[in-house]
């Protein structure tokens, strides 16, 4: 599309004008809807970022407490238990479940932690001594992991929302700065072309009317001339007629008392 006005390649007809108007209306509705969606998402996004900030700080504290309790275990057991724990890990007791949350048409996953019953890989850990500390440490760490899971779901929501907001904003801007101006330009173009056609048509009609008028005037003049000629002729005749009547006045009265000489019987 060359030229200053960026518009769509359409023929300037009334039909395409209607189409363009419908398109403009659609674009405006879509724009306002998308804008609202973007606003709702941004609101949610800000809330999530705030919560992430808080959760990260909380995580720092929780992990500190958890490390401390692990140190307690090491002290109580009186040796390093990490090797034993690493070797005895078999099946996860702490698992995740994902559920979804719908924010203005965007599905945000949320992790949820749950503990499976009845499998304990570390039954023997701390059997000799420090069992109580081990138990406490496990509980502390379980709480820490719960906090981590919560943070992870916030973070996932953050990443997804970030992406979706970018896409939505891009669409809003595309509609606002490309589609709507272009459609408006097209409508303007079609209108100007239609006006031009209208003017042309009007001029043509005027021309035709003028020509017709001229023709009728000529015809009228002719007719008038003819009629006048006729009237003149009629007048002439009328002037002649009385003499003719005089000439033919004979057969009027047969019973008149005029003597008819030719009657033989």
């Amino acid at each position: 599309m060359s030229g200053a006005a960026d518009r769509e390649a359409v023929f300037p007809t009334r039909q395409s004008l209607g189409l363009m108007k419908a398109k403009l209306k659609g674009a405006e509705t879509g724009h306002s809807l998308l804008k609202r969606k973007s606003e709702a998402l941004t609101k949610r996004f800000r809330e999530i970022t705030r919560r992430i900030d808080e959760a990260k700080r909380k995580m720092g504290r929780v992990m500190q407490i958890a490390s401390l309790s692990l140190a307690e275990v090491t002290y109580a057991v009186g040796g390093n238990i990490s090797f034993q724990i690493q070797e005895s890990a078999r099946s996860a007791r702490f698992r995740l479940r994902t559920k979804q949350e719908n924010v203005s048409g965007v599905l945000l996953p949320a992790f949820e932690s749950y503990q499976t019953e009845g499998n304990n890989d570390f039954a023997m850990t701390g059997l000799g001594k420090g069992g109580q500390q081990v138990q406490r440490c496990r509980e502390t760490y379980a709480r820490a992991v719960e906090a981590l899971v919560e943070l992870a779901s916030l973070q996932t929501a953050f990443v997804i929302l970030d992406e979706v907001i970018k896409v939505v904003n891009r669409r809003v801007n595309a509609i606002e700065h490309v589609i709507i101006p272009r459609t408006e330009n097209t409508i303007k173009y079609i209108n100007s072309e239609l006006d031009e056609l209208d003017r042309e048509e009007f001029y043509r009609l005027k021309k035709v009317a003028a020509k017709k008028q001229r023709d009728t005037a000529v015809q009228d003049a002719e007719m008038k001339a003819k009629r006048e000629a006729k009237a003149a002729a009629a007048l002439d005749q009328e002037n002649q007629e009385p003499e003719a009547e005089d000439a033919t006045a004979g057969p009027t009265d047969l019973l008149a008392a005029e003597e008819d000489e030719d009657v033989i019987f």
Binding site: S67, L70, I81, I85, A92, F94, L96, Y141, A144
Partner: peptide, 24 residues
């Protein structure tokens, strides 16, 4: 996706394994 994975130093891994996230 139901597991957690961990990359970390000995103490962190031990603690998290104690919480029960370890899976082989």
């Amino acid at each position: 996706r139901q597991f957690l994975a961990v990359i970390g130093d000995e103490d962190s891994v031990t603690g998290l394994l104690l919480a029960g996230i370890g899976h082989v």
